[in-house]
Computed example of a mutant assay.
Amino acid sequence: MRRTDKYPVEGPNSLWQVYRTVSRWKAIRNFIFIQISRYAPSLPLKRWIYRHVLGMKVGEHASFALMVMVDVFFPERIEVGNNTIIGYNSTILTHEYLIKEYRLGNVRIGSHVMIGANTTILPGVTIGDHAIIGAGSVVHKDVAPYSFVAGNPLRVLRDDVRNDQPDDERDE
């Protein structure tokens, strides 16, 4: 279940009213620094920008791969734990602008989480510690710790990955 706050709007769809919800200057500043981070090869530089410019909570040794797109308007609503990997070209959203309303929700990604490439994480979800998200997934609901999930719609492939052995150990 996603936890989002809903804000109704009058008149045209909510995206036309975006600058009533967020400052233009904040959006421009965030966009510039997010684009720098998307292309920067330096993980410490990315973490510094996310923490000190965008206001995200980012744990030690958290790694954001090339082309990761974090929410432009509300990146401060993103929290990523220690030693987590966010895969290539993934998107983390904390807002959604709809026809008659917009919604905001925090995204919490635990520690030691592996998020595969091209994954989209929607507002208001929590991903538990040690979870694995398969590439190309749409995370539209909470993910339990130690679970392996994938797909669109998101499905649980394994409830607990603690007992899994690496492929090279299974063959012996």
Rank of each mutant, 00 (worst) to 15 (best):
F31N: 14
D129F: 03
Y7P: 00
V143C: 09
Y7Q: 00
L157N: 05
Y88P: 10
E76C: 14
R155D: 08
L66Q: 13
Y146E: 07
R108Q: 13
L122A: 09
R29S: 13
T91D: 06
A135K: 07
V113Y: 11
V22P: 09
T4K: 02
D167E: 11
S42K: 08
H61M: 14
N152T: 04
I49T: 10
A144G: 03
D171I: 07
R170E: 07
N152Q: 07
Q35M: 12
S137T: 05
Y39N: 13
L93Y: 10
R158S: 07
E169P: 04
P123L: 01
P44Y: 01
V18H: 00
D168E: 14
S111C: 10
F74I: 00
F64A: 14
V9E: 08
V58Q: 03
E96C: 10
P41K: 02
P145K: 01
W25G: 03
H140V: 11
E60V: 05
E76A: 13
V125W: 02
K141F: 10
F31M: 14
V143H: 11
F148Y: 14
A62L: 07
K26Q: 15
N106I: 00
M69Y: 13
F73D: 15
D167V: 09
G59S: 08
D160L: 04
D167R: 01
V53C: 09
L54M: 03
L43S: 14
Y19Q: 03
A150N: 02
R47D: 12
V143D: 11
E169R: 02
D164L: 04
E10Y: 11
S37V: 07
D142Q: 05
R103P: 05
N13T: 02
A131P: 09
K6G: 01
I133H: 06
I34D: 06
K57A: 14
L15M: 14
F31V: 07
P123H: 06
A135M: 11
R3E: 15
L66R: 12
V68E: 06
I115K: 03
I92D: 11
D160Q: 01
I28A: 15
V53E: 05
V156D: 03
Y88S: 01
M1Q: 12
L104I: 15
E101V: 02
L157S: 06
T21L: 02
V72S: 13
I109V: 12
K100S: 14
V58L: 06
D164C: 08
M69G: 13
D164P: 07
W48H: 14
T126H: 04
R155Y: 01
V68K: 04
Y102N: 02
G11N: 04
I121G: 05
